[in-house]
Each structure stands twice: as C-alpha cells, then as structure tokens.
C-alpha cells in the first residue's frame, strides 16, 4: 500500500482508543483514507467495525486519539451514514422523497437546489418506483436505496455504510451493488463500507482493511487494483481470485486463528 500524504487523506485516525466496561476495543489504532477511495472494512464479529465508523461519524465518543477530516472534526464536515437496518433508519411518517429532502432542509438549501439533487439522485440510481410512497410500502431493496440516496443527498465528504446489504436477498444485493459502485465512482465519494461478505468487499473497494480480534489492529491492508466498472466477469478474473485467496489466508491465520 502506497503511503497516503496528508493532503490526499479525506479521513485520518490517530492513536484511537475506545473501551467498553474496561475492555479495550481500540488501543492505539490509526488509519488514513484517501480522498475518493472506497475502503472496505472486514473483520470478525464484535471486533469493533461498527464502533469505528460510529466514532468517525460522531455518534459515539472516543476515549482517546483523534479523528480528523482534512484537519477538521466531524461536526464541521458533511457526512453520510447508511444503517444496516433501513426499517429503523428511515422516517416512516415521511414519504420516501421527504426522507431524502430532510437532510437538505437541515442544510438550509433552496427549494430548487433540493429538487435538483433529488432528481439527479433518482436519475443516477434509475429509480422506477414512486418516491412519493411511504417507506413501509416499498420493498426492502427500495427502502435501502432510499436510505442510500438520503445519505448521498448532502454530497458527503465521507460516506459510511454499515453492512448495508446484509438484510437483503442476493438478487437485490447484486443490483444495488452495481448501482452503488457506478454512483460512488462517478461522484468520487470517499466511502467506508463495513461488510460481512468478502466477495462484496473486493468488488466494491479500492482497498480492503482486514481487522484482528480485540484489541483491534490492522491484520492486512490490501489494495484492490481491479478495473472499474466491476461486473459479473470480474468475479472470475484471476486478479480477483488472487485477492480473495490472500484475504482468506489472512483471515484464517491472523483473525480466526488468533
């Protein structure tokens, strides 16, 4: 992995510490994420993946260390966050479009600009369902798509996704994955994706961070130099298979075996 110069980093974590009830989850953890990159975080259950992005998103206080966005703290930057459980993240009393407009209203944007962003997102994600529907009348995949649009509407400097597809069926996951990579790459959105699916992590990421058990450290940091866009054929390309083998190897040795 090439070193990331401070100017290239959209997000820098230094000496992060966090413990729950005296048990350390992070004890001196550092990370730089390059602007425009999609970073996938892969690690065993309970190693602290959600904890990491929640601290980065300002939803959870840190015990020590610092998390900076190009020198600024999280309150000073726009971020997007997609929760695993879309049912509990969307506002069911607002229509889908109103959910997407919500963060834009909080930013104080003009109505015309809000509508422009909504339309551009709907076009980018090729939305064919009615955005004036209430979330509960949409399918799971459509609801998670609305969550993703809501998070991207603010044009975030960093987008966080915590296992966004784990509650969806395989077919839906595949089509959402394809749409997401197109949009993220077109918009050059810096993204941190937590995933339980190794194949998904490789397909979507520029870089994979393999984490160890607690106290959590980086077991391996793997660049994914596959061409974009990544399609069905990518899954059987030799490079893809080689990366997957390396990841599995690291996982069984450093992670599962420790």
């Amino acid at each position: 992995m090439n070193a990331i110069t401070p100017r290239e980093a959209a997000l820098s974590v230094r000496g992060l510490r966090k413990a729950f009830a005296g048990v350390a989850v992070y004890d001196g953890f550092s990370l730089d994420v390059k602007r425009g990159d999609i970073l996938a975080i892969f690690g065993p259950n309970g190693c602290g993946k959600s904890t990491l992005i929640n601290m980065a998103a300002g939803l959870l206080p840190v015990d020590g260390g610092e998390i900076l966005y190009d020198g600024r703290i999280v309150d000073e930057v726009r971020i997007g966050y997609v929760f695993q459980n879309y049912r509990e993240a969307l506002f069911p009393w607002r229509r889908a479009a109103e959910n997407i407009r919500y963060p834009l209203r909080r930013m104080g944007l003009k109505r015309a600009e809000i509508e422009r962003r909504l339309e551009s997102l709907a076009a980018d994600f090729r939305v064919r369902f009615d955005l004036n529907a209430y979330p509960y009348s949409l399918s799971g995949g459509q609801q998670q798509l609305v969550s993703i649009m809501r998070a991207l509407a603010v044009e975030p400097e960093v987008l966080f996704l915590d296992e966004p597809f784990s509650a969806l069926d395989y077919e839906t996951t595949l089509s959402l994955r394809t749409l997401l990579q197109q949009v993220l790459k077109a918009r050059k959105t810096t993204t941190i994706l937590v995933s339980h699916d190794l194949e998904e992590s490789i397909v979507l990421a520029d870089r994979i961070l393999m984490l160890t058990r607690r106290p959590t450290l980086v077991a391996d940091d793997i660049a994914v130099d596959l061409a974009w866009p990544r399609e069905a054929a990518t899954l059987s390309a030799p490079d893809f298979i080689a990366i997957k083998a390396r990841c599995l190897d690291v996982f069984t040795r450093a992670v599962a075996g420790a």
């Binding site: 300002g58 939803l59 726009r78 971020i79 966050y81 459980n85 993240a89 969307l90 963060p103 930013m107």
Partner: peptide, 18 residues
C-alpha cells in the same frame, strides 16, 4: 423511540431540539 432513527437524524445535522 428507535435509537437508530435518533442517530440518523443527528447524522443528518438535526439539532437536539429538532
């Protein structure tokens, strides 16, 4: 109240009163 929704609102820049 669903905790996730409260967090979602915070991430989207809603003030505590909001």
């Amino acid at each position: 109240a669903r905790r996730t929704r409260l967090l979602a609102a915070r991430v989207m820049g809603a003030s505590p009163l909001r």
